[in-house]
């Protein structure tokens, strides 16, 4: 039998067409967005290419910028102080302007582990970390991270001793949060590039530590 056949129950039939017509109809807000966008282009306020470029920039921005900021804080105590106390000025050095939001940087230490969630929606430091991961927006992460953070961390493979305090930050209003992970022991004398390779997206959201040295070498 050449034709593979499959039973499935995910709510549509495969009728052999490459594109399945199971997209939901546009929401009112989407229709409004399209109308406003078309008007702005028609009136010459912005071009279609401006919009495309803005989307591309948003979607290609990733954790590498965050990693650079973290490594600068690890290697430059004056910058770290500025980042923790007056983050807007610190970010300007990287050409990042978060306004009207403000960045709140929270530091992991031997005694404290920080973790970020937005229970009400999906607030995330996009200018630094890009688009949030899908799980960050899911109802289960959003509700459980505040209710049982240690269980959630364990599911991410992050085992914490009982005496390390867990501080959960609900990003519910005008601040955006960046976790400053702990610099691993044994990285003295490393170059910035080597250090940046340790810093992951998840370590800056606080659901894990940075990459272990073994992981990097392996």
């Amino acid at each position: 039998m050449s034709e593979h056949h499959h039973d499935h129950d995910h709510g549509h039939d495969h009728d052999g067409k490459p594109i399945q017509e199971d997209e939901l109809p546009a929401l009112e807000a989407q229709i409004l967005e399209t109308s406003v966008r078309e008007l702005l282009i028609e009136k010459g306020v912005v071009s279609a290419d401006d919009i495309r470029r803005a989307i591309e920039a948003m979607e290609t921005r990733g954790e590498s910028l965050g990693a650079k900021i973290v490594v600068r804080a690890w290697t430059d105590p004056a910058f770290k102080e500025k980042l923790l106390t007056s983050s807007d000025d610190a970010l300007m050095e990287f050409g990042i302007d978060m306004r009207p939001m403000e960045l709140c940087v929270v530091e992991n230490t031997e005694d404290v582990h920080n973790m970020v969630v937005c229970t009400l929606c999906s607030c995330y430091p996009r200018p630094i970390l890009g688009i949030p991961p899908a799980w960050y927006k899911r109802r289960d992460y959003r509700s459980r991270a505040v209710r049982e953070p240690r269980a959630v961390l364990q599911e991410f493979g992050t085992e914490l001793p009982d005496n390390r305090q867990v501080r959960v930050h609900d990003s519910n209003a005008d601040l955006r949060y960046l976790v400053l992970p702990k610099r691993p022991e044994g990285t003295e004398g490393w170059t910035n590039d080597q250090l940046e390779a340790l810093v992951t997206r998840d370590s800056m959201i606080g659901v894990s530590d940075v990459r272990s040295l073994d992981e990097l070498v392996g």
Partner: peptide
């Protein structure tokens, strides 16, 4: 920013008594 003890938010919280939640109000 307001800091809450997790035990204040959830009476059956089973992590460390030092664990906190911080939120903007």
């Amino acid at each position: 920013r307001v800091n809450f003890k997790q035990g204040e938010l959830w009476s059956d919280y089973d992590g460390s008594p030092d664990d906190t939640l911080e939120i903007e109000i």
